[in-house]
Simulated scan of single mutants.
Amino acid sequence: MINNNGTLQEHSEKALSHSNRGLAYGDALFETIRYSGGKLFFWEDHYFRLMASMRIMRMEIPMNFTMEFLEEEIVKTIKASSQENNTVRVKMIVWRTAEGKYTPTTNDISYLISTEILETSFYTLDENFYEVELFKDFYINAGLLSTIKSNNKLINVLGSIYAKENDYNNCLLLNEKKQVVEALNGNLFLVNGYKIKTPPLTDGCLNGVMRKQLIAIIGQLPDYILEETSISPFELQKADELFITNVITGLQPISKYRKKEYETKVATELLSKINVKARLG
């Protein structure tokens, strides 16, 4: 089942028209949320990121778009799909409902909620070999629009194709200043001794919900110092660990980048704390 503006319908039913602005111009936003144990993980952060992104996109936020209303709509969709006892990946898309070409006739919005069952009820550390490479064909622009989850993900699509064609598990993306920004599907963290680095939002990385959670967790640990600072490609091979974060997988350790192979000690420690916070938060 999907939820199309509050109406539940089968996946096979028509949900989008050919004039949909998300389809035609990428004039849309989305959130991916993990549901497990009867709750939406980090729901408040997802909600406020969505509201902030809609303001950046100059979308008209409906009066009924409260945190409680959207949570009810998501849970309603999960229950209608008989998935309330499963772990679920929820995707919510919001697009501008308007005629017009580049200039919309209104800033009103519509939304669609879909779900997909996940295998594990809590975050686990993937110990399979995981190799990455830089994707240098195109660059992310360091700016505010790069920090939001819009439907403009061509670099991520092309980078994913490049990774698949060259037998890499993932790619790291660069901005126009040749700074390492993020992975194809999440934020990047670099561990070097007691220092943990992650690129700042000003470099163009996604304002990730798991990134925010992990920054807060590391800030409470006396053994580590967190730095939001630019990362050059030359630093990657000097690091002790590299890992990628997002709210669906949690934390993905990187095994190898070029000739350098990495540990997973800090990643393992942090993942256990992420699971605790997800359950309590």
Rank of each mutant, 00 (worst) to 15 (best):
L242C: 05
Q237G: 13
K39I: 06
V276D: 11
L118Q: 09
L134V: 12
L188I: 15
P62M: 15
I231H: 10
Y102P: 00
V191T: 08
T7K: 11
L226K: 10
P233H: 02
G143C: 12
G38T: 09
L270V: 03
M59N: 12
G22A: 07
K153F: 03
F48D: 03
R58F: 01
E10D: 07
D203S: 15
K101A: 12
L112H: 06
L23F: 13
I217E: 15
F135M: 12
Q179I: 01
S160G: 12
E10K: 09
N107V: 02
N4G: 01
D223H: 08
E227P: 10
L173H: 10
V90W: 01
K273N: 09
K277F: 02
Y123V: 09
S230E: 05
L221S: 08
P233F: 00
R211F: 06
E235K: 11
D126I: 05
L201R: 11
K212Y: 04
T7C: 06
I117F: 03
D45L: 14
N3E: 07
S150Q: 01
L16Y: 05
I274Q: 09
L188P: 06
H46T: 07
T66Y: 00
D223S: 10
T115H: 12
R96M: 04
G100M: 10
T249N: 14
L134K: 00
P222M: 01
L236H: 03
K164L: 09
T147P: 07
Y35R: 09
L173N: 10
Q252R: 15
P62D: 14
F189L: 08
K195H: 08
T245D: 10
I225H: 05
G208H: 10
E72L: 13
G204V: 03
I93Q: 02
K256H: 06
L125M: 15
L16W: 02
I218W: 03
T202Q: 09
M1R: 07
N175A: 05
K149G: 01
L270H: 07
N166D: 04
E71V: 03
L8G: 05
I244E: 06
P233A: 00
G186L: 15
F65E: 07
N151E: 06
